[in-house]
Design a protein around this nucleic acid. Structure first.
Lengths: 183, 183
DNA sequence: CCTATGCATTCATGTAGATTAACAAATCAC
DNA sequence: GTGATTTGTTAATCTACATGAATGCATAGG
């Protein structure tokens, strides 16, 4: 849900808040009627499975919106944790932002496009998870999010890719070793 | 994208077409500006990877809409094949159906809700693919789509779950064996 | 009706990635 | 600055699932 300036303008006067690295904005089990626009910094959303293992669902750098749409849509308590990977400035939006009554036709169409884009990104992610090897997934991640890797610890990238930090480390080792032999 | 009666009413006069089991409505590489509303029957969308292996992205039974939103959104040729699992009646819709100019505010809000629902379903699928074992994924599939399993060959269910037909067969064997010992 | 092709199941073997553990480097707390 | 905790790397072992092949059934087409 990138480039959401349209919607944002409606809320820029509302409460912008400042958070430190590691602060949690939403916990599993809470009621979650909020969405978070990232003005500055980097947030992430993730689940923790029954074995206590984290699975990162998405990263949200500057200009992105992050929320637990599944739980909101089905009126369930939150399944996702949302917290800060970096010190961040966040505008807290209401869940209704996408269909609030003040919106005009053009703004609604814009929202339809934003959601279509989000569906498209998720479609790509599902197909990737089903058909690509760990190495391919890592390389696709680097292409898709060229600016994020150096801001995020390896273990979180591994978690986003659905593999262990050890496996990612091995893959990175292979890639740099291959590049050395080429150079 | 279930229960799309709102949108449908706009197009019910357009060309409804009849297809046989196995007929292909869209191929990889084609320009894909269409979406398909399933009036009767069952469609599926899938990719074929570089090793020639099918990966089913979704099933669309009666009342659902199916389309390659990713490719449409990024203006690329289709990544997905779409074909008929059963004999089907399909209304062919234009890609612009979600933001076409005749739509009023309520219809647009309805579209926002439909897309939110789709995002929610995909969120669930991504989390499942990342964190659940093959057996858990199969059981979740049975819960989520209780009506589909008996209409779809095992190998397609396996493909949807991201495992081989052999692995699914083993899992099914385990489940029925366990149920027998309980009874 | 009979043959051919596809489908589900089972088993034997292979492999990507998980798990466990050990260690060095970086970061944090005080 | 110093000890403690977190992070990234490497290596040895383990396991879930893939791959490949054989077999019995079903469905389709002549």
């Amino acid at each position: 849900m990138e480039n959401i300036n349209e919607i944002l303008s409606l809320d820029s006067d509302e409460n912008t808040r400042h958070f430190s690295k590691g602060d949690t904005l939403q916990r599993e089990g809470e009621n979650c009627s909020k969405a978070f626009f990232v003005k500055k910094g980097l947030l992430r959303s993730y689940t923790i499975d029954d074995k206590g293992k984290e699975h990162i669902f998405m990263f949200a750098p500057e200009g992105w919106v992050i929320a637990d749409i599944e739980s909101q849509e089905f009126n369930q308590p939150a399944k996702l944790f949302i917290d800060c990977v970096e010190e961040s400035e966040v505008i807290i939006l209401d869940r209704s932002l996408l269909i609030r009554s003040e919106l005009n036709i053009d703004q609604l169409k814009n929202n339809v496009n934003l959601l279509s884009r989000r569906v498209a990104v998720l479609q790509r992610r599902v197909i990737m998870l089903m058909s690509a090897s760990a190495k391919d997934r890592y390389e696709l991640f680097l292409e898709t999010y060229p600016k994020i890797p150096n801001r995020v610890p390896q273990r979180m990238i591994a978690s986003y890719l659905g593999i262990t930090p050890q496996a990612l480390s091995t893959i990175r080792g292979e890639i740099t070793r291959k590049n050395k032999t080429i150079l």
